[in-house]
Design a binder for these strands. Structure first.
Lengths: 152, 152
DNA sequence: ATAGAACCTCATCTATAGGTGAGGTCAAGG
DNA sequence: CCTTGACCTCACCTATAGATGAGGTTCTAT
């Protein structure tokens, strides 16, 4: 008989969250999830971590780096499970990030459309090269893609 | 008096392409660009590399990893500068990749919209978690984002 | 009680895309 | 001539996100 309220082992979490045990170790080491230890020093987790890992994976799909995800999760109280309201705030922020990413990629695609066959790459006023330069001037690389995430 | 047809040094390429000297070294080591050496063993490049570097940077913005960019460039004859037709083929292929990326991110955003506040993350039929599982089942991680690039 | 599965830590490795500094060489102007 | 800036190689470092294996311990079921 399985008690659905029993604490989860690393293996349980890994299997049920669809990640490897190494990943669970890694997330705990990075402070993204939290648990306690058994008498014999084995990891134990509340069922709540499953939702946390799910949230982490969704944010990663949206392109949010782990450090930023941690920042966002840290801004939430840790003494209770994630609530719907928490998820609402996180998903809204990440949705906006996603929109910005989509906007940037769409703009690039449109520029690519406009430039296909034009051979203008060597000219100073090519929109593709200029957009790139404008970004480069604002800092180093990938500004649009890696721009600040919520809570960090 | 500056001869616009004179070969470029690494420093020239770096300055004019908007990358660091380390990056030029790196690209040459990876076979993304090619040049020759002066009597004194210093790197020399034809002006053509400027266009190549520009193409590389655009592909990177589209999310194409360097190895795939190299694959695409290797499929092109190296005994002449990049032509408009070459650029046409590359940009069309990358445009499609970009479209796929945009589609995947847009789908994720729509799912996020549908799920905001629904609190369904813990349920097995949440579209966000399922989409994730479907991807995971096809291999490990980031399938949509890193899917095959042209010429590799 | 004991076999075997699951778990522990720690060190090392993978891949991507470069950056940094040491120690030495090359090239051009005053 | 000789200084100075640009260049060379090589080794090692950074960050991200884990994977892998060694050597030893704990848990659980029979």
């Amino acid at each position: 008989m399985i008690d659905v309220r029993a604490p989860l082992s690393v293996g349980d979490v890994a299997r049920r969250a669809g990640v490897t045990i190494a990943t669970v170790h890694f997330y705990e080491a990075k402070g993204l999830i939290r648990g306690w230890r058994s008498e014999g020093n084995q990891r134990r987790y509340a069922r709540d971590v499953l939702r946390r890992v799910a949230v982490i994976k969704i944010a990663q799909r949206a392109g949010v780096p782990l450090a930023a995800i941690k920042g966002a999760l840290d801004a939430l109280p840790t003494d209770r499970p994630l609530t719907v309201a928490d998820w609402d705030r996180l998903s809204t922020a990440w949705r906006d990030l996603l929109s910005e990413r989509i906007r940037a990629l769409t703009q690039l695609r449109d520029q690519l459309d406009g430039c296909i066959g034009c051979g203008c790459l060597s000219m100073a006023d090519c929109p593709l090269r200029n957009a790139d330069d404008r970004l480069a001037a604002q800092g180093k690389g990938a500004v649009l893609l890696d721009a600040g995430a919520p809570g960090s």
